[in-house]
Amino acid sequence: MQDTDHKERTTSRRQFLKAAGTVAGATVGLPGTSKAFDLEELFQQHFRELSQEDLERVLQRMERKYEEEYGKPFSVEATGPLDGVMFGYGLDISRCIGCRRCVYACVDENNQSRDPQIHYIRVLEFEREEVQRWIDFEKGDPFYDHEEVPAEGKLYLPVACQQCEEPECVRACPTTATWQEPDGIVVIDYDWCIGCRYCMAACPYGARHFNWTEPGIPEDEVNPKTHYLGNRPRAHGVVEKCTWCIQRTREGRYTACVEACPVGARKFGNMLDPKSEIRYLIEHKRTFVLKAELDTKPKFFYFYG
């Protein structure tokens, strides 16, 4: 017994030394590899403190890096918010059929890791009778697998980032790596995130996801049209989240989930525009927000159309 123990220990020590040697070797060889240790990247400033010229340089460096990594032309934009815009989102739970088209449209658009799997949208299935008066999230089942949906007597409630006006995740971040933009989108500077995951603990909606390993995105599936604060490929060890497709919505387009929804249950627009869909539904429908009692003031409104 003792012998085995001893053997195991020596093996692991040998493995450790081997690993240490590999690391040392890799460090020496780093400048030549594609994941080169980049001094410029190390001294890169926080996104909000970058000047226009510095930002241009950073974006170009990122484009080069991603091109090398994924073998196709990349664009990394940093399009700013539009004046007089505060985004809002509506979801008609009387329409949602739980087909999960939105989940996968989001994965494709926003370059989420396929393996290990990261999904920003989680569709919860409830017994319709149980949620007549009260939604108990403990009873929501994200793993339902029926041949066809909607299943009899069920209600579907997709949950992703609620883009709170009082975001707890932002308050929890010790490095100001996450903040709320002037148009209301809560974003992350993935180069400033230290991966402490305080924000994940703070978020009451489970909307933040951590890259425990290097994200796995097949080269032919990666979306090369990206935004610095949005869908550019993330690194191992950082937190990521839904940004309401910042790369699309800052250019005036709808989010990928809105366009993917086969029943038109998802609504998106500018809450400051009295003629927008979102404004209409807030004014004319009975809306509710998730966990309103926490006073996080979500800008994601569920309604019954």
């Binding site: 709808y254 038109g264 609504k267 500018n270 927008s276 004319h284």
Partner: peptide, 13 residues
């Protein structure tokens, strides 16, 4: 108002 039915394209456009 665009609340019943699906809209695609541009929220501002």
């Amino acid at each position: 108002a665009g609340v019943h039915g699906k809209r695609t394209g541009y929220w501002s456009g």
